Computed example of a mutant assay.
Amino acid sequence: MTSTAPALIDPVILWTAIIGLAVGSFALRFAFIGIVGGRAMPDWLMRHLRYTAVAIIPALVAPLVAWPAPTGGTPSLPHVAVAALTLAVGYLTKNVLLAMGTGAGSFVLLLYVSG
């Protein structure tokens, strides 16, 4: 029985990636805060920016519901049921925090009950 150590990444490649990501992140933030920060944004752009948060949360959650890691990527009833309940609470109450709290609580409760 042979044991193989995990492959280590080259430190030069690692630090190049870290520095590149840091510079890119700074440049993106500076473009909005440093260059455009003192100017008024057009109304059409402000209307579109209002929907940014509404688009990001589902984009982060949808893969976790469609391909949950604990089941090996197979959709599971608890994940879909909790997603449907969270969507219903969010739609009916128009309260993001209540919807997220309901989703988290119901998921923990459902997993506790189902074993």
Rank of each mutant, 00 (worst) to 15 (best):
M1L: 11
M1H: 13
T2N: 11
S3E: 14
A5S: 13
D10A: 10
D10R: 09
V12Y: 01
A17C: 10
I19H: 02
L21H: 08
S25I: 05
A27I: 01
R29Q: 15
R29D: 12
F32N: 06
I35D: 07
V36F: 01
G37C: 08
R39E: 10
A40G: 04
D43M: 05
M46F: 07
R47M: 04
A53I: 06
V54N: 12
V54C: 08
A55H: 06
P58N: 03
P58Y: 14
A59V: 12
V61G: 02
A62N: 00
L64T: 12
L64D: 06
L64E: 14
W67V: 05
A69P: 00
T74N: 10
L77C: 00
H79E: 13
A83T: 05
A84H: 02
A84Q: 02
L85G: 02
T86K: 02
L87K: 03
A88S: 10
A88K: 03
G90H: 03
G90T: 10
Y91A: 07
T93C: 03
T93K: 04
K94D: 03
K94H: 13
M100C: 07
G101A: 08
G101F: 09
T102G: 08
G105T: 11
S106I: 02
L109E: 06
L111Q: 10
